[in-house]
Design a protein around this nucleic acid. Sequence first.
DNA 1: AACTAACCTTGATTTGAATCAACGAGTATT
DNA 2: AATACTCGTTGATTCAAATCAAGGTTAGTT
Lengths: 244, 244
Amino acid sequence: MRPDDASEIRALPLFRDIREETFADLVTAGFLQRFPSGVTLIQERERADFLHIVTDGLVEMYAGTEGEETTLDLVQPLGTFILAAVLKDQVYLQSARTIEKSRIVMIPAEKVRQAMTQDAAFMTAIVMELAGGYRQAIRDLKNLKLRTGTERLANWMLGQAGEGNRVPLPCEKRVLASRLGMTPENLSRGFATLRAHGVVVSGSDIEITHRDALIRYARPDPLIDQREADTRFPPAPGPAMAKA
Amino acid sequence: MRPDDASEIRALPLFRDIREETFADLVTAGFLQRFPSGVTLIQERERADFLHIVTDGLVEMYAGTEGEETTLDLVQPLGTFILAAVLKDQVYLQSARTIEKSRIVMIPAEKVRQAMTQDAAFMTAIVMELAGGYRQAIRDLKNLKLRTGTERLANWMLGQAGEGNRVPLPCEKRVLASRLGMTPENLSRGFATLRAHGVVVSGSDIEITHRDALIRYARPDPLIDQREADTRFPPAPGPAMAKA
DNA sequence: AACTAACCTTGATTTGAATCAACGAGTATT
DNA sequence: AATACTCGTTGATTCAAATCAAGGTTAGTT
């Protein structure tokens, strides 16, 4: 791994506050690899061997048997995946494939576990990362169980647009459909439905023209849709905190 | 909290390996409370204030707006809940209510965070607990996205029966239905469908008469259905492990 | 024991979503 | 430039699930 690759991932919440020495250990053991689009990086049911970090490109996490598979997540640059499997030293529950030309940093699972025991700050960061991942999974569950497909789409658009009105498409629509738990056909129909609620779609050009109308349709819920700010530990203590 | 209440939760993976002193701190700060059935213990969107441990009874984790809610999990004795919210010092994503007469141990969030920084073994246990919870949530997602309601029911039955053929019902069928992501009506129909696949249902008496037939229908997948063994850290090292 | 109130089941209907099938648009290839 | 291919859209149909609407059972109460 080259020095500037290392400094790039140093900014990650997972590594930001750890000791220089711990980081050096991880970087030394790890390596960076480039992959074209469409490469399977890990396969569900295999033993966890590396912590993966996406430094460039896009990775799809998916699961299921051939022909009957579903997208569970998209990992964008400066995201990590399968930390939980690495820590528990168990098999992957998800597969991963590149869906763009990507750069991936891989760190041997054993080194991660070792570093965790040697650096309390690293372990703390791991706790926060896992807690965040867990909470995101709960959000996904609520999203799936409480909303229709088109509602999920509408809320996804609001999140993706941020403050602006353009909705950048991070991947093929078929992948987005699977991520949202619907078929490509129904995603199309979903976009069609949303035309009546302040949305204009033309190919991969997606725009929100009447945000209030879309919000009225989507009924966004911060407990489902709001990305969580990454938390440093200890979290801001209350004004009147007891000391042990 | 009485001494034997304390010793009861000492056996939990979360506390099993922590220092005596840490455990004493937590026990001193915590308290035990008894609740009748039907009491709301926590409410989504509130600030996380206590780590909860169910020592007796049954707790339903649910979410959603009045009238449109869904059950996310059932917590049985010697289970904990909302650890992630406590650690991140954020709001609950789920509500909790007793659905049986229950005994709950509550430990102030601040004490948990404090104990974590003072006892590496406790932090390690937390990492394992979070990783396990995260993986379970991923399993739930796969279960929902890859299977029909009746398939989820069939696999739930196999898991609930264990080695035997009786399928104990831990809760009302309406709650089970919600947990499995279906309506009570469709749960009934699901049981009806499974009569053709080796299942006999009469009220709350549920029995598997032809396990092979049910398995053929359910097509269980260890990556979805298998409970994870709780992992101590470090996980079993390979035969040739480097020492730092 | 009779009454009440949940809970569960069953049937009919509607709605949401998946599937099947055809076509059009865009991209890459020859 | 023509071709082949993938991707996305649209329509028709089928299927799964939710909803609406009765009944029936059970448990808890008076």
